[in-house]
Each structure stands twice: as structure tokens, then as C-alpha cells.
Design a protein around this nucleic acid. Structure first.
Lengths: 228, 228
DNA sequence: GGAATTTAGTGCGAAATGGTACAAAAAAAG
DNA sequence: CTTTTTTTGTACCATTTCGCACTAAATTCC
């Protein structure tokens, strides 16, 4: 039993605000919290990929035995997909906020890339990179459903960056000649690149230097000041 | 028996120029050509990755049975490493020439990216992307030897691009403000990005558009003509 | 307290996997 | 022709892997 035993979950009766839709389970209570378990599964998949992660590994990491795993999430592929969706949900939650709020582009880009680096470099046994990039490199070619999710993630990032640059251009932070879509693709490419390098254990400092250089090129450091 | 049966390999006696160092094998002749077999193994690994490729798959693809595979290349990991080295040798052969010869940067970049796209989009059952990126996403975190090779590949590309931009700057094709190292990182990032997208089956046309946009930003299309 | 319901946990089984032992085969050397 | 050397191909083994029956628990409803 790996996971923390769940205490009485209801709290005071009539407490509807705490956990959404947890009325009164009927049979034996679960010994795991699905959310926690899925997080552990995601960690494993991010470290080792789909094929190199066995159900036994997942079972050990989640603290659920295989039948429970199966009952809760379906077979390995479904678990992978659910893990990936969770990864994306989290990424969206983290990045979305930064993308949304209104700052000078340069500052915004810095925050976005820093957040990406945090995601890619986290992990107890080495950095784990970007799960989208990893999935593209493994399952995406052969599995249409998974591929669709990857494509989705890629275009979503492109679009977020594009909007970011479009707004900056509207605010006069970028020259008229700037093409938001092209800049967005460059920004995405920088993200992909640091994701790849992170998996190769390139030190954070180097990755930050790459990011800094890329930002300088995308939003030319020396434009709004003077034209020599 | 999948591979073409090898004919009498010597040719006329004294023919030393044909195959280098093929004197006179002593025992039973091999039923396969190691080079061809390694190529097939590489194809498989590129499509499915290390973990998802079984020795049976490799045996079937190469036409060698497992003991022969083992005798010729060692265990699965060694075979993977040799496959990767072969991939890199080939990539170097293709790209190296383009990097070396002396052209206007813009033209040179176009040729480099086109060559990369050819490598990434080839493959009978779908595009196979960049083996370096794939390996970074799978084996590189846990296996130090493999990781070292990946790091090597990454920095080699960075350096090649950097030299390319440095030369262009010397020739006056780039402004003094241009930083060859930063531009090189952007170029590498573009390569990584189209590699990832290729695996997600993004159509070639889109990838070419990304490349075109990136080139425009790196070597500003409208600089040598006028400064508005 | 007892029925119903839901989960946990053991354990089985069929298939696949990586690796190897061993004999038969094919060539050169003597 | 016999020996030696090298490779092939079959067969095998130990382990892992995925998935699922089936029983034992834990909880709610009556």
C-alpha cells in the first residue's frame, strides 16, 4: 500500500463545495486516489516512454495492483492517453495563465520559456523533457488517436504564441514587418529544441542562454531605442 | 532468406579496388551483407524506437536469425548504437557536403533544411523524423553512452550552423549585429521542430513554410536592399 | 444483522521477449 | 578426402509482460 490512506472524505454534511460530485460510494472504498495514481503513471511514462514502461512498473508506482489499474483506467494504451491528457491539462493550466495576462512581450516570453523549462527539467531521476515531443517520437506515427492529440498540442502552442505576438504588434512593441505566425513558429521551435536538449541533460544554464538568444532575435532588443 | 544472395565477391583475382579488405573468408560464407542488414535495423529502430522493436522484428527485417544478429552486432543495445552511428554517418555525409560548400547563406540554408526534410520525411510506412531527436526522447536519459552520442549530434549541428553564419557574416551577408551562435541555435531549433512535427505527420508543405519563415527571420530578407 | 455492491489482492495463463546452446552446413586449408 | 573454421538454423530456456478469473474484503442500503 503505497498511497496515503484516505481519511473520511465528506467533511461536515452539506459540504458541497469541497470535492465536486463525491456523493456516497456504495461498495468497498478505493485504496487510492485516481488523481494521484494518474500523476504517478504520468511520471513513469514521462521518464521511460510507453513501450519501456511495464504494467508492473505502473502498478508499483501507483500502489494499485494491475486489476485495479485496469478497472480504473483501462489497458496500457488508455492509461497512456489519460496520462497524456493530464499532462496537457497541467501544461495548459500553467502556461495558459502566463499567455493570457498582459505584459510586455519580452517579459511574457521570458516567463513562458521559464515555465516550460520548469516542466522539462523537473523529475527526480533526471529531466524528463516534453511529453508531447516524446510522444511524437514514439507512438504518434503509428497510432492515429495519439497522433491527433500530439498535433493538437503542437498547433495549440503555435496559436498561443501567434496571438501573443499579434497582440504585441498591435501594441506597437513589434515592427510592422514582424509576422506573428512566423515568430510563433520560431518560438515553438525554441520550445521543442530545449525539450530535446533537456532530455540529453544539457544543463539548465545552457538552455536559458538559448532561450535568451531566441528572445533577442524574435523581439529585437535594439529596435525601439534607436536605428543606427 | 530475405536478403539478396551474394554472388562471388572477389571478381577477377588481383582486383583490390572493389571491396576494401575482403581477402578470403575462411568458413561458411555469410548469407547477409552486414551493411544492408544494419540499414534495415536502422529503418526499424527509426520507425518504432528501441523498446518497441523486438529482436524478432529485427531478425525478420534483416533476414538474419537471432544468433547471427547477435554474432554480428552484439545484443540489442549494441545494435541500436551501431544503427545510430550509421544514421549519423549518413547524415554527416549528406549534410556535410552542403555545409561545406560556399554559397550565399540563404541558398545554403535552403539546401540544408531541404536535406533535413528529405531525411525526416522518408520512410515507407510514414515519416520517421530525426533519429537523434527520437533517441533523446527515449534512451538518452537513462543510458550515458547513448546520451553522449546524442549530445554530440546536437552540438555538431549547432557548430556547423554557427560556422555557416560566421562565414556569411564575414562575407558581409549578415549585419554586424548578427550573432552567429544565436542564429545557429535558432537554426538547430528549427531542425528539431520540423523533426518533431514530421513524426506527427504534419504535411511537407507546412514544414517547408516553417523553414521558409525561419530563414527569413534569420537572414533578414529585406536588409541588404534598403533600410526604410 | 443480512443482502447488495464495489473494490482489493492473489494468482493463473498464454504470449512475447532477449539471449544462448548445439548440431548441421558450407566454405577454405592441408 | 579430411580437418578446420565460420556461419546458419533449429530449438530451447528463463523472464517478463499483459490481461483476466476469481476470491476476499470493506462499505452502504434495507
Amino acid at each position: 500500500m503505497v498511497q496515503k490512506k484516505k481519511g473520511p472524505q465528506g467533511g461536515a454534511p452539506g459540504d458541497k463545495n469541497a470535492a465536486p460530485a463525491e456523493p456516497k460510494r456504495r461498495g468497498r472504498p478505493r485504496a487510492y486516489e485516481p488523481d494521484v495514481a494518474l500523476g504517478k503513471a504520468l511520471d513513469l511514462f514521462r521518464s521511460s516512454g510507453f513501450a519501456a514502461t511495464s504494467l508492473d512498473d505502473l502498478s508499483a508506482a501507483t500502489g494499485m495492483n494491475r486489476p485495479s489499474l485496469y478497472g480504473a483506467f483501462g489497458d496500457k494504451r488508455e492509461l497512456y492517453i489519460k496520462s497524456y491528457q493530464r499532462y496537457r491539462d497541467n501544461a495548459r493550466a500553467v502556461m495558459g495563465g502566463i499567455f493570457r495576462d498582459d505584459r510586455p512581450v519580452r517579459e511574457q516570453l521570458q516567463k513562458i520559456f521559464a515555465a516550460a523549462l520548469d516542466i522539462y527539467l523537473s523529475g527526480e531521476e533526471g529531466p524528463r523533457g516534453c511529453f508531447t515531443v516524446m510522444t511524437a517520437g514514439s507512438e504518434a506515427v503509428a497510432d492515429p488517436d495519439i497522433r491527433a492529440m500530439v498535433q493538437n498540442a503542437l498547433t495549440e502552442l503555435d496559436k498561443a504564441f501567434a496571438q501573443c505576438f499579434r497582440r504585441a504588434k498591435d501594441k506597437g512593441e513589434l515592427p510592422d514587418s514582424a509576422d506573428p505566425v512566423v515568430l510563433a513558429q520560431l518560438a515553438s521551435a525554441t520550445v521543442h529544441s530545449i525539450a530535446v536538449r533537456a532530455r540529453a541533460r544539457v544543463p539548465r544554464q545552457e538552455l536559458e542562454a538559448i532561450v535568451a538568444g531566441a528572445i533577442d532575435v524574435m523581439v529585437s532588443r535594439k529596435l525601439p531605442l534607436s536605428t543606427p
